[in-house]
Every structure is written in structure tokens, then in C-alpha cells.
Design a protein around this nucleic acid. Structure first.
Lengths: 144, 144
DNA sequence: ATTCTAAAACGAAATCATTTCCATTTAGGA
DNA sequence: TCCTAAATGGAAATGATTTCGTTTTAGAAT
């Protein structure tokens, strides 16, 4: 039982249930970037009973309280991952192994200036995600 | 019948059917940014019979051949819009009136350098969308 | 103008990710 | 140990999107 995760849940005002911790462990470990169904399939063996709605619910709650991060993939499915970085940043996702790297700067300030100069508008939110192949997968030639 | 649109369809190797043209007209006019269902509802009156699957199919085909552009909204629904700009660029979408502005630069080159320097990885694609309020809506105080 | 054929459209039904509902179980403070 | 709000199960609902087999149509060829 990873105390860091218990701690994170406490801070978020959520009970540290075994299933929640298992989900966090999964996201903080091997399955760093996964869809609700993928996580469910991988966790089913560990629990006699584990409903898919529970996984959805927990992922959504964890994302809402900022413990994990949610992204919308181009295929329109939801994916979640654990990310301890509390600063504003974005992510580079390896299309092969799904490893996620933080991208601290996003140059959004320049774009905001461009928008306000061009249309007088105001940027309230933005979506930025980089997809590609990480160094490891490039070396191995794994271009799945 | 807008000849520009007929032309665009021809170039894409698609037949210029009345329904397709109506969809394009809609996207190039009043409903510049709309979901499949919204377009369907607005076009139903003009045609005795118009199936929702037809709207979906056409939007997908038009997007595939680059005549229109598809984006995933934060609410996870699909939206499409007409965009004549053939250069690489991104979009600023007004959350109130849904007007779409092109953002020619996206600063992706700097981020690509960052990724390759940090992890040795390679960026293959990226998603960037700015959401906010356009100048007009800001003035009118329409912060729906 | 008529014929012909591949492309387009129909609409009902299927699909499939996600959510809801409500009865049951459980974490963790009292 | 008890208690209560929070968490979970599982079946069923939801709702966007797609599939299927059939019918219609655009537009090239005659």
C-alpha cells in the first residue's frame, strides 16, 4: 500500500479504498496511460468483484480532484494517467508504449496575445497534446 | 448552388449531391461550427427525407478529404467546420457564438525540440485547440 | 435525352463507451 | 465496536455513432 497514494486520496477528501489504491498504483506504475476498460481488465483478477462503473467513477473523481489527469485521445476515447506535476503543463504521449512525458512550457501566452490582437477575444482554456514515439521506442524500431 | 463547394467536392472526388452541398453551405454560413445532430436538425426541413447517418457519413468523408475540419470539443462531442485554409494551423473557438478563428502559428517547433532534447522522442502529431470568448461576445457580455 | 453503374442515401437496428439507479457493502471517525 | 456517509455492484439505461441490406440518384457514357 503506497503511502503516497493514501496521502493523495486523503488530501482530496476521498476514502482510501483498496480499489482506488489499485487504480492509482496501476496508473503510477506499468499502465501509466490507460482507458477505463483497460484498467478494469487488468484489475479484475485482483478483486473477486470489480464493476466497470466503479472504475469509471473512480477515474472521474480522481481526475476531478486533480490526483490524476484525463485526456481525450484522437480516437475519442478517454484516457487517464497519473501526474504529480501541479504546475500548468502538457503532455507528450508515446503512441507505442504510451509513456507520458511532461511538457512544462506550451507557448500558450504567445497564442493568447495573437488571439486578443486579431479578434479582441480572450482564451479561457486550451487543449494541447503531443503524440509521437518516445526515445526508447524509436531505438527499438517499434513503430506499431 | 455555390460553385466553390461544387468545385471542392469534385476535387475531393465526391459527387456533388444536394445534401452534401447543403451541409457545406450550412458550415460555410450560419452554422460555422456544429455537431452532426445540430446540422441534421437544421437541415431536416429542407429535405423530405434526411437520415442522421447520412449527415454523419458526409461529415466524416468531407473531413477525411480535407474539405472541412473536425474537432473534439471538451464535452467529447464531435464538431465540424468549414475551413478553406490549407496550411498547417489551429483554431480558436468562441464558446459562446462558436465562431472559429484560424491560428496560423502554434509554436509546435519549439515543443518538438523540447521533446527530442528531453527524451529523444519524435513528435508525430499534435492536438491544439484554444477555447474562449471572441471579441464580439466579450463586448456583449455574453458569457453563457 | 436515355441508359447505366458506382456512389450515395435510407432507416431500422446494432454497437459500444459511458452513466444511472438503487440495493448492498465498507472505510474510518466517534 | 458502532455508525453513517461514502463507495461499490450489477443490471439496465443512455446516447452518440456505425452497420447493414436495400433503394435511389449523380453524372459519365451512349
Amino acid at each position: 500500500m503506497d503511502q503516497r497514494h493514501v496521502q493523495a486520496l486523503k488530501q482530496a477528501g476521498m476514502k482510501a479504498t483498496p480499489k482506488r489504491l489499485a487504480i492509482l498504483d496501476m496508473l503510477d506504475g506499468e499502465s501509466s496511460f490507460a482507458s477505463p476498460e483497460e484498467l478494469w481488465k487488468r484489475l479484475r483478477d485482483r478483486f473477486e468483484r470489480l464493476g466497470l462503473p466503479t472504475v469509471y467513477r473512480n477515474l472521474e473523481e480522481l481526475a476531478a480532484s486533480g490526483v490524476i489527469t484525463k485526456v481525450i485521445h484522437p480516437n475519442r476515447q478517454l484516457y487517464y494517467f497519473f501526474c504529480g506535476n501541479r504546475e500548468h503543463h502538457h503532455h507528450f504521449v508515446c503512441l507505442n508504449c504510451r509513456k507520458v512525458e511532461d511538457i512544462p512550457s506550451c507557448g500558450i501566452e504567445a497564442l493568447e496575445r495573437e488571439v486578443s490582437g486579431k479578434t479582441g477575444g480572450k482564451v479561457l482554456s486550451h487543449i494541447l497534446q503531443l503524440n509521437g514515439l518516445c526515445g526508447g521506442c524509436l531505438e527499438k524500431g517499434e513503430n506499431k
